[in-house]
Design a protein around this nucleic acid. Structure first.
Lengths: 105, 105
DNA sequence: TGATTATATCAAAAAATATTGATATAATTG
DNA sequence: CAATTATATCAATATTTTTTGATATAATCA
């Protein structure tokens, strides 16, 4: 089922954290991170996540791919950077499905 | 984080299904399963899950342990059977934490 | 009590996931 | 165009999770 896949995506601490970072960068009061151009923006690129979490590049790519494949994250190429955005609609769908599946509320 | 552990527990299709079965047995209009005593009851025991999903016993035990360890399932010994119950409160807490973490609604 | 039934645990194997370093691709810049 | 920067992919390895069969424990039943 779709919800099992999404649970799987959320079951890694790094991915869970990245998703939270994406949400914060999109909904927080002010963007906190800027790329090497000093550009402040919404969404995060691979390299920003990499620096923020001190991870090597291929590891970030791997996890971003996992997130994109479940639909929890959308991506967009902007110049030489690829930016990622949390798909909050998908997350909400997940939450609502969990509620239905387990008869909550 | 606790939510990562719970996501992990939900990330296996068998466990997800078992949890749904438990919920159904507790909240459905009528209990559907009965044990070898012909006893109709709320909650499910190891052997009922085993038969229902055609799984060997140790495999069921393994998954039930995973579920119990995250707190998603409670257990109770009743005679020679051990009955399991979904912890819907825990599931609701999970859902609400996901909402907070990802700024949903 | 001995036999039976239900569940737990363990060690080994299998399968799935994650990490790394190397290399490839792709966009941009000078 | 060559150099640089950002990301993707790949193969090898490591780690984690799952499955299985065997055996142990524990409750009940005759």
């Amino acid at each position: 089922m779709d919800n099992v896949k999404i649970s799987q995506a959320l079951s890694d601490p790094i991915r869970y954290k990245i998703l939270m970072m994406l949400v914060r960068s999109e909904t927080g009061c002010c963007p906190v991170i800027s790329n090497s151009d000093g550009d402040s923006h919404v969404g995060l690129c691979n390299c920003e996540i990499m620096n923020e979490l001190s991870m090597i590049q291929s590891r970030v790519s791997y996890h971003m791919k996992e997130l994109v494949e479940t639909g929890l994250v959308n991506e967009e190429q902007r110049g030489k950077w690829k930016y990622y955005f949390a798909n909050r609609k998908k997350l909400l769908d997940y939450v609502n499905q969990v509620k239905r599946d387990f008869n909550l509320e």
